[in-house]
Computed example of a mutant assay.
Amino acid sequence: MCGNNMSAPLPAIVPAARKATAAVIFLHGLGDTGHGWAEAFAGIRIPHVKYICPHAPTMPVTLNMRMNMPSWFDIYGLSANANEDEAGIKRASENIKALIDQEVKNGIPSHRIILGGFSQGGALSLYTALTTQQKLAGVVALSCWLPLHKSFPQAAANSANKDMHVLQCHGDADPLVPYAFGIQTAEKMKALISPANITFKSYRGLPHSACPEEMVDVKRFIEKQLPPISDE
């Protein structure tokens, strides 16, 4: 994915319609690829923003009877007290930080990059934003949770993103990542970063998926956090 993980193909990319002065890095959910999300962002694209949707490496996932599938890290269970793949989460987070570094080398400063994801990808985006020294424009966290939440606020205290803006979205009919997890994650985030910068949106009747209304909210958040630069 980032030069140190050859098992994943190159990310799906929606290039900016003009010179890219900002970027969104968005991580898909378990068993998925970046292609569907690249299509979704192509439908709400903003001219100066580049969208990068990487693909997770394929690995055996304990939750799914050790079947091989695209996964950012192993998942042992979906209950609130399930053990977590700490080493895998930290390794995946380092890969995402390397991806951010690559965009910085490409000329987009980190404070003009939004990190986001859906489900497992959203969980990884929250964890990465709270543990990186790269100052980000914000995080879009869809239908997800905060992994390794017991390791905070120690990690967050050293984070460059204590004042970042977060858009958290969750369907109230989610059978996989319960709506209550979303609420609890938002409350935990408010204890870690400026509470005024956290927006939690719920969607009535939405299961573990995205919907058009949600994507409009995502677009508005991106427009607000990544406005055009005055000389564009």
Rank of each mutant, 00 (worst) to 15 (best):
N5Y: 06
N5W: 02
M6D: 07
P9H: 07
P11C: 11
V14T: 11
V14G: 12
P15A: 13
A17G: 03
R18V: 13
A22I: 07
A22K: 08
V24D: 02
I25M: 14
L27N: 12
G31D: 08
D32P: 08
H35D: 14
H35W: 09
A38S: 12
E39W: 10
A40R: 10
F41Q: 08
A42Y: 11
I46F: 04
K50A: 07
A56T: 14
P57N: 12
P57E: 13
L63R: 14
M67E: 15
N68H: 14
S71G: 15
S71F: 13
I75C: 14
L78M: 15
S79N: 12
A80W: 14
A80G: 11
N81D: 15
A82D: 14
E84S: 14
D85W: 11
E86N: 04
K90S: 02
K90V: 09
R91I: 07
R91V: 05
E94W: 04
E94T: 09
N95G: 06
N95C: 06
N95Q: 06
N95L: 02
E103Q: 01
G107F: 11
I108Y: 01
S110I: 09
R112P: 12
R112N: 05
I114G: 01
I114K: 05
G116D: 06
F118R: 08
S119Y: 10
L124M: 09
S125I: 07
L126P: 07
T128L: 05
T132H: 06
T132I: 03
Q134A: 05
L136A: 05
V139C: 10
S143T: 01
L146I: 09
P147V: 13
A156L: 04
N158P: 03
A160W: 01
K162I: 01
D163Y: 02
M164Q: 02
H165F: 05
V166Q: 05
G171Y: 07
D172N: 15
D172C: 14
D172G: 11
P175F: 10
L176H: 09
V177H: 11
Y179M: 14
A180I: 04
G182V: 07
T185L: 12
T185A: 10
E187P: 02
A191C: 05
I193H: 01
I193G: 01
P195R: 10
I198M: 12
F200S: 10
S202G: 02
R204L: 12
A210C: 13
P212E: 00
E213K: 01
M215L: 12
V218Q: 01
K219I: 05
R220T: 05
R220G: 08
F221V: 04
K224D: 12
K224Y: 08
K224W: 10
K224I: 03
Q225T: 09
Q225V: 10
P227N: 07
P227T: 03
I229S: 14
S230Y: 06
S230T: 10
D231H: 15
D231E: 15
